[in-house]
Measured scan of single mutants.
Amino acid sequence: HNLTITQGKLFFHYNPKLCLSEIHKMEEVSGTKGRQERNDIALKTNGDQASCENELLKFSYIRTSFDKILLRWEPYWPPDFRDLLGFMLFYKEAPYQNVTEFDGQDACGSNSWTVVDIDPPLRSNDPKSQNHPGWLMRGLKPWTQYAIFVKTLVTFSDERRTYGAKSDIIYVQTDATNPSVPLDPISVSNSSSQIILKWKPPSDPNGNITHYLVFWERQAEDSELFELDYCLKGLKLPSRTWSPPFESEDSQKHNQSEYEDSAGECCSCPKTDSQILKELEESSFRKTFEDYLHNVVFVPRKTSSGTGAEDPRPSRKRRSLGDVGNVTVAVPTVAAFPNTSSTSVPTSPEEHRPFEKVVNKESLVISGLRHFTGYRIELQACNQDTPEERCSVAAYVSARTMPEAKADDIVGPVTHEIFENNVVHLMWQEPKEPNGLIVLYEVSYRRYGDEELHLCVSRKHFALERGCRLRGLSPGNYSVRIRATSLAGNGSWTEPTYFYVTDYLDVPSNIA
C-alpha cells in the first residue's frame, strides 16, 4: 500500500525493539523526510534493546553428524571492536523451508527459537588472519532439518551509529543413524509349514526405512522333555500350542467401542483428552525405555581390526524358502538304536541362519518350516543398504507352526516275539517326523474274553527296548493296539495285532 503524509511529521519514542533503520525507511515511504526535528525521533529510546544489523554474515563451514552440527561463519568486528559482546545463534526444527525470524513471537518477546549466546573469538592483530567464530550444536535429532541463523550482539553506541551483522536463515539436516526397533511384532501360524509375521514401523526411523531383515531359527525343545518319565503317576503330560491366527481386521481397528449394538453396526467412541494424553505418555515412556535398553543392555560386537582377528559373527547367506525346513542338525536320541526319531534339535552355532529381506511392506510369510516346531524370529529395521547396512537392534518374537495331521501315527506293522515265561516283546517304529517329539506310547492289549488293559511306555523305555515287553501273560489269544502321544496330543491307534500265548508248562520236552 502507498502511504503519503502531505502535512505533519513523524514522532517515535520509547520503541526499544524498533531499529532506527526501520524508522528511516518509514520517513522515505511516507514522504516526511526532512520535516522531523532532532528530538522527534529519539536516538536513545528507539532500538536500544534490539540488534540492528546492516551487514550480512556468511557461514564459512558446515559439518553434520547424526546428532551434531558444527558451524563456522566469517569474522565480524565493528569499528570499535570492544562493542562486540558476542553472537546469538538461533535454531529450531523446520520440516519445511518457510521459516521466518519472527515465527511464534508474542507480545512478551518470546519466540519459538532456541538461542545460544556465543563469546567472540580472540581478536588477531592481523586483519587478514582473524579467527572464524563458530559453535557445535549438540543433542539434535537424527535425520531432522533445522533452520539456523546467527547475528551479532553489540553494545549501545553513544554516537548512535547503527552497526551489526546478521546471516540469512539456512537449512541444515542432520545425518541418518540406526533406527529404533520395529514396533509390535506379531507372529502367527496359518499352516503346519508357515508363519505369518506382521509389525509396525519404528517410532524413530532416523532416516528413510529402506528394508527390513527377518531372521528365523528353529528352537530346540526343553531338555526336561527328553529326561522326564511322563508315565509316572502324578506327572502331567506336557503340551505345546501353536500360535493362533490373526483376529479379523475389524476387531483390530483402534479407537473402536468394545460393545456392539445388537441391531447392527455401531460407531466408534472418540477417545477423551485424558485417554489420548495417557497414550502419549505411555508411548514416550516406551521410547525412553527402549533407548535405555539399547544403550545399557546391548553391547556392540567388536569388529575385526587390522591384526587379522576374525569377526566372530557368522556370515549372512541367503537361502531359498524351500530350504528352511531342514535348518537344524538332527541327532538321534540314543545312538545305539537307529530307529528312534531325530527330534532332539541342538543347533550348531556355526550354522548360517536363513533370512529374508523385506522391502516396502511390514509383513512376511515364512514358508518351508517344520510342522509343530518353535521358531525364534528376529526382526531388524534398516535405513541404508549400501555401502553397508545400517540397521536397528533386533526385536524378537516366537511362534510355533501348526501340527501336521497323521504325523504322530505309527507307520509300519507292530511285530512281536514270544519268549519263555510268557513274555512277549512288542516292537514298532517311532514316527519319523512327529509333531514336536514323542513323549510316550500307549499300549492297549486284551486277552479274548477279558477286559482291555493299558500300559504306558516312556520315551526312554522305548529307546532301550525298541518297544516294550509284556510279562506274566496268561495263555490265550491276544490283540494289541499302540498309539503315540506327542507334544500336540495323541496320534491314531494302530491296526490290531494278534498273537497267541501258550502255557509254557505244557511245552513238550526233548528229553527222552
Rank of each mutant, 00 (worst) to 15 (best):
K317S: 12
A407W: 07
L293G: 02
F215W: 01
L321R: 10
S257K: 08
P314I: 00
E351R: 13
V424P: 03
T288V: 09
G207C: 03
K287T: 13
G374R: 03
G234D: 09
F215A: 13
V397M: 15
E404A: 02
E452C: 14
D204W: 09
V397I: 01
E279A: 08
F215Y: 05
L440Y: 09
N339Y: 11
A405E: 09
R390H: 02
A381E: 01
P413G: 13
G368Y: 06
V424C: 13
S320F: 13
E310S: 10
D323T: 13
L455H: 04
L232H: 11
S348E: 12
I276R: 07
K302T: 15
R318D: 12
T272V: 12
Y498G: 09
F355N: 14
V480Y: 07
P475I: 11
E281C: 02
L426A: 01
I482N: 01
E430S: 15
S257H: 04
S509T: 08
L440H: 14
S239L: 12
F246I: 06
P332R: 15
D291T: 11
R353G: 14
N435Q: 02
T415P: 00
H461V: 10
Y500V: 11
R466G: 08
Q219S: 08
N422T: 09
C266D: 13
D503S: 10
I418N: 05
D385P: 08
L440K: 09
K236G: 12
E282Y: 15
S274W: 10
D408T: 02
N477D: 14
T210P: 04
Q275T: 13
S274R: 10
C269Y: 08
A463N: 08
Y259M: 03
R469Y: 09
F226I: 07
A463M: 12
R319K: 13
N421K: 13
G308A: 13
S203R: 13
S444C: 08
T415S: 11
V345N: 11
C269R: 05
N339V: 12
H425T: 12
R447Q: 08
A220L: 07
L293C: 03
H461M: 12
E217F: 04
E351I: 15
V359M: 10
P312F: 07
I366V: 09
T272W: 10
R313D: 03
R466M: 08
P413H: 08
P387T: 14
P244M: 14
F246N: 14
T303K: 07
S363L: 09
A309E: 09
V296G: 04
A395T: 03
H425N: 11
A220S: 10
R286M: 10
S398L: 07
V397T: 02
T210V: 07
R318I: 15
E247W: 08
G308C: 03
K357H: 03
S398M: 03
D323W: 15
D503M: 12
E442P: 00
L277C: 03
P238S: 07
K460I: 09
E451P: 12
E420N: 15
R471M: 04
C456N: 01
V329S: 10
Y500D: 13
R286D: 02
L437F: 02
V297D: 08
T328F: 10
G207Q: 01
S223W: 05
Q252V: 12
K271M: 12
N422A: 04
C468Q: 02
L455N: 03
L232P: 12
L369C: 08
V397H: 09
K271T: 13
T485D: 11
K253V: 01
V480P: 01
K432A: 12
D291G: 07
E465M: 02
M427G: 13
D261L: 10
S284L: 07
I209K: 15
I209E: 06
S344K: 10
D311R: 05
T328S: 15
Q219D: 07
S223T: 09
E452A: 12
S344T: 13
Y230W: 09
G412E: 09
G306S: 06
L277R: 14
E404L: 04
G467F: 06
L464T: 15
P312N: 11
G476N: 00
E404W: 08
F215Q: 07
S363N: 07
W242F: 12
N326T: 02
G325H: 12
Y375L: 07
E249S: 05
H425K: 12
N295V: 06
Y375V: 13
T210S: 04
I410V: 15
Y478P: 01
H352F: 08
L487K: 15
T494K: 04
M402Y: 04
H461Y: 07
A220M: 10
E221K: 15
S268M: 12
G322N: 07
P387W: 09
Y375K: 01
L379P: 01
T485G: 03
R459S: 11
K317E: 15
N360Y: 07
S486W: 00
L369Q: 15
L426M: 10
E221M: 14
V324G: 04
L440C: 11
E420L: 09
V457P: 00
V327K: 03
S320C: 09
S342M: 08
L225Q: 11
C266W: 05
A399S: 12
S262Q: 10
Y448A: 05
H254L: 08
S458M: 14
G491W: 00
K278G: 03
D409S: 06
N490G: 15
L232R: 12
E265H: 09
N255Y: 04
E260M: 06
V334P: 10
E217I: 00
Y448C: 13
F246E: 12
A484M: 03
G368K: 02
E217H: 15
P245H: 09
C468S: 08
I377L: 11
K302V: 11
G325R: 03
P338F: 09
T386K: 08
A335W: 07
M402A: 11
H425W: 02
E265R: 13
Q275P: 09
S248Q: 15
T288N: 10
R446A: 13
C468E: 01
E417P: 03
W428V: 01
A309Q: 10
G368W: 06
Y292D: 13
K361C: 12
F372D: 02
H454P: 06
L505S: 09
S348A: 04
E430R: 10
D408I: 00
V345I: 15
N208H: 06
E265A: 12
S509Q: 09
E420Q: 02
N490A: 08
S348R: 15
S268C: 08
N360L: 07
H416M: 10
S444Q: 10
K357Y: 04
C456A: 02
M427P: 01
D291V: 13
L473H: 01
L232F: 12
